[in-house]
Structure formats: structure tokens, C-alpha cells
Amino acid sequence: MTALLDVQGLSKNFDGLQVSADITLALHPGERCALIGPNGAGKTTFVNLVTGVLAPSSGTIRLAGQDVTRLSAQARVRLGLIRSFQVARLFRSMTVREHLELAVLERERKTFRLFASVRRTPGLADEVAGLLDGMGLVPVADTAVGALAYGQQRLLEIALALALKPKLLILDEPAAGVPHSESHRILDALDRLPADLAVLMIEHDMDLVFRFAKRIVVLAQGRLLCSGTAQEITTDPRVREVYLGSRANAPH
């Protein structure tokens, strides 16, 4: 089976400082993968490289076999490479429903219809209703996002990504800022993601990572340190070292 996302030898230098070094990573359809690493490990740079916000210094990125290394961020979105944002980036004065309508219309490239009615666009209302229902956002559908609770904004972020029908979904700290008591709602929502969707999650909350991801990739100092199951990762001495410092390896 060809990989959905195939990253080969990806590197990025800023003024001679190497922030991503020779990262090779493959993701298959339906995979649930988490990317972890200490602060400054280069996770955000990696996401920006894959999504096309930054151009790599070397290496290639393929999506479903197609080389997208030189494509713009927008072109990658249209190929199904979708990300959510760490800090909820939403349109404050627009309602939840309007957000999802906009995303669906963008996906179907109907946004240059100047004289059509949003409300009477065929199939739109049904699809939006489905997305609202899937994330439990029906009660707040007509609420302006500025008046929404933070946890609901995070759910809307995920719904917005799903509205674009992603093949690969990159979730940048989906539970950031959500109180621990409510993070189960995020997890519930993540459990209901389409089965054939490949998901790469960047997250600090290890509970969430262990419950969600089948495979965990550890990044440190811009390099791929190791990759494996939760069990393999937690027992790997190199991981303990980057997170806890070298003393953690000393005999007890």
C-alpha cells in the first residue's frame, strides 16, 4: 500500500540554524499517529513544512503519491491536506453554521457565486447539519463564535477541518486551553473521525496521546528520535533522556 503522506529527508535551515533535520515519515490511510517532543523540538516547523507555510531547504513531501513539495498551502488544502490551529482561529462575528457553510462552499469551490443564495445551495444545509450533529454543536449552531465557550470553539475547529473532507488531518494541540474535565469531549469527537482518515496529532497532553494514537513519533532538536507504540515509547531510554534530562537514566 502506498503511503498517504510520505515525507523524505525533510530539512529546514533558518540562517544556518537547522530547525528540522532529515525527517523521514510515512502515514497510511486510517492511521492515528501522534507527534510529540519537548518544547523547541521543531514540531511547529514540521507542521508548517508539511502544510506549505514554510518551504523546506531540502527533502520531498508526497501526498497520495503526488509530489507536493513545491505546492502552495492553498493547493495542498485542496488536495485534502488539512490542519487545525493550536489557538482557535475563527471568525468572531460569524455563527457556527456560517463557518461550516463557508468551509463546505470553499471545498466545492462555489465561493465565487455572487448571486446565488447560501441558504438555497443544494445539499449544503444537510451537510452542515451532519457536521453540527457530529460535533454536538447543534444547540449553538446560530451563535456567534465570539460568544462560544472555549471547548466548543475547539470542537468547531475540528468540524471545520472535517468540512473540507480531509485525507490527512493535522491536529495542532486540539485540547490546548481546554480544561482537563472537558477534554473527554474532544476525545469523543476524535473517536468519531472517519475511519479511513489519516490523523497526525501534535499534543502535550499524554493521556490524550496514549488514548488516541496507535503510533507515536518523537521529535527532538529537529530530528526524528524514535517511533513506536505507547509502550515502546515510554520505555525507550532515549525518550526519557530528552524529556527528563540525562540524570533520569542513572541507576536508581
Binding site: 475563527l90 471568525f91 462575528s93 462552499l105 465561493t111 455572487l114 446565488a116
Partner: peptide
């Protein structure tokens, strides 16, 4: 009220 209008409101905000 068109899809285009909705997109423009989005651009205005972010």
C-alpha cells in the same frame, strides 16, 4: 447573502 458574500466576511475577519 451569497457564498461570495460569506467568503468576503471571512476575509474581513481573518
Amino acid at each position: 447573502r451569497s457564498p461570495f458574500g460569506l467568503a468576503c466576511r471571512g476575509v474581513k475577519e481573518d
